[in-house]
């Protein structure tokens, strides 16, 4: 058992500040357990969002000591005994209360991604895919939509004015997963350039660093989409497509 000083953000709307709580953390506890202990013993009105406590629902996103993390996956024994630990809401999104933010920006952006448009089925009426065809999109399907990548992305975190023009890493991998789908017929490269705003991404890889599912967002999603976009301006590719035929219908 160790005693920690927790600095937890408390506030609503434009008002708020960090408040200190001394908490005893038992062996094996995570930050979310400590927040629950504060709720149970010192601040019953402390608001925090959580569900599964197993790193699979993506609800308890917060910034622990300034790093975007899932509270349920951050063990207390990773901090030196007696350390003061700050817990703040994810700062990129509007504050509802205490550690709870409004992430509806992401739902708006999700609707804008051109959906899967299937090619016609095989003559027997079935669709067929091989494992090697779906390996790449499957990595992106691990996403739990915790929006930590959206939170840490400096384009939306530090430049509020760019939010309308930028979808963010979560939706770049969603578009990449659909674009690489073996049965899809839509070309999303022009969409991702003009409406997704992928040109604003300068691939500093913070999204990859914070992903609790360890998805290679930048290397396997964003950069391949940038390369697919560059295909449209490559005369060698243009020439090859003249012989082989175009890639897909623009979204």
């Amino acid at each position: 058992m160790q005693t920690f000083t927790m600095q937890v953000f408390r506030g609503q709307g434009r008002q708020g500040d960090f408040r200190e709580y001394k908490v005893i953390a038992d062996e094996g506890m995570v930050v979310l357990d400590v927040i629950h202990r504060i709720q149970a013993t010192q601040a019953p009105d402390l608001a925090c969002r959580w569900n599964c406590k197993a790193g699979k629902c993506g609800s308890c996103s917060a910034e622990v000591n300034g790093k975007p993390r899932l509270m349920c996956m951050t063990r207390m024994d990773t901090f030196p005994p007696g350390e003061t630990i700050s817990v703040a809401p994810i700062r990129t999104f509007p504050l509802i209360r205490d550690l709870v933010t409004d992430v509806s920006y992401n739902y708006v952006k999700a609707k804008q991604v051109p959906p899967l448009r299937l090619k016609p089925p095989d003559p027997d009426g079935k669709y067929r895919m091989m494992q090697e065809d779906v390996d790449r999109p499957q990595e992106f399907h691990k996403c739990i939509e915790c929006f930590l990548c959206q939170d840490v992305c400096h384009v939306i975190r530090d430049h509020e004015e760019l939010k309308p023009a930028f979808s963010g890493p979560r939706f770049f991998i969603k578009a990449a997963g659909l674009d690489m789908h073996p049965l899809d017929t839509q070309d999303r490269t022009e969409w991702i350039r003009s409406q997704g705003g992928i040109g604003l991404c300068n691939i500093t890889k913070c999204c990859t660093e914070v992903c609790p599912e360890h998805i290679h967002i930048t290397d396997n999603g964003i950069i391949p989409m940038k390369e697919r976009m560059a295909d449209n301006f490559d005369p060698v590719v243009w020439l090859l497509r003249k012989f082989r035929g175009g890639r897909k219908e623009p979204a």
């Binding site: 953000f9 506030g11 509007p94 504050l95």
Partner: peptide
């Protein structure tokens, strides 16, 4: 949206 104002945390990082 439910809210429109970001958390009022002035420091550039924590």
């Amino acid at each position: 949206q439910v809210a429109t104002v970001r958390p009022p945390i002035a420091t550039p990082h924590l």
